[in-house]
Simulated assay, not measured.
Amino acid sequence: MRAEGLPGGSWTFLTSHARVLLALSRDPEVRLREVAETCLLTERTVQAIVADLEQEGYLTRVRRGRRNHYRISPGAQFRHPAEAGRDLAGLLALFTDDPPTTRTPQRN
């Protein structure tokens, strides 16, 4: 999939790995096909990303009947030295909580 649908250009602040991790944290039983649609990626790319995240300990995959259930490891540390010492919990809290509403004060 291409980034044609992105407003303002082809780059974004979050990586595909972060986007997939956040999608799985929002709905641990989501199908990877749906994650691919949400993240504007191919299903094969999402499968590879999930394998990366699982291999590095950022998530575990548990089979429940015919579906997978994904469990995120919020205490896992970021890999890059620029984020050394920080864990996923902060990122998850930032992007999975309901975003605050921005209201413009009404004048009487």
Rank of each mutant, 00 (worst) to 15 (best):
P99K: 15
P74T: 08
G5D: 07
L53I: 08
R107S: 04
E56Y: 14
F95T: 04
E56T: 09
R71I: 08
E83A: 12
R19K: 14
I72K: 04
H17W: 02
R86Q: 12
D97Q: 06
H80Y: 07
G90Y: 12
T96M: 09
Q55W: 11
E34H: 13
R67W: 10
L14Q: 08
P74F: 10
P100G: 06
R103G: 13
R66K: 12
P105Y: 15
A76P: 03
G9D: 04
R33D: 01
L41M: 05
L59N: 00
I49P: 00
S73K: 10
R103W: 07
M1K: 04
T12E: 10
R71G: 05
T38L: 14
V35S: 08
Y70V: 05
L92T: 04
D52S: 06
V46S: 07
W11M: 09
L32F: 02
E34I: 01
Y70I: 01
F78P: 02
T60V: 14
F78Y: 14
L88V: 05
G8Q: 02
T45N: 14
E4D: 05
T42M: 13
S16C: 10
G85W: 05
A48H: 14
S25K: 10
E56C: 08
T104W: 15
A82R: 04
T104P: 00
T12N: 11
H17A: 12
T45L: 14
F78R: 10
Y58K: 08
D52Y: 12
R103N: 06
G5K: 04
A82S: 07
A36W: 06
I72W: 03
P74H: 09
L91V: 07
V62N: 06
Q55G: 03
P81D: 14
A18Q: 11
T45F: 12
G90H: 09
L6H: 02
V35A: 05
Y70R: 07
E54M: 11
H80G: 06
T45E: 15
D97P: 00
T104G: 06
A76R: 13
D97F: 04
G90F: 10
W11R: 09
R66S: 13
T102V: 09
L21G: 00
S25Y: 05
I72P: 06
R44F: 14
P105M: 14
R71C: 02
P100D: 10
T15Q: 07
E56K: 10
V30D: 13
G90M: 08
C39D: 00
Y70T: 02
R67I: 12
D87E: 11
Q55K: 12
E37Q: 05
A89K: 04
L53G: 08
G8F: 06
G57M: 08
L94K: 05
L94Y: 11
L53H: 06
R107L: 12
E4V: 01
F13S: 13
P100S: 15
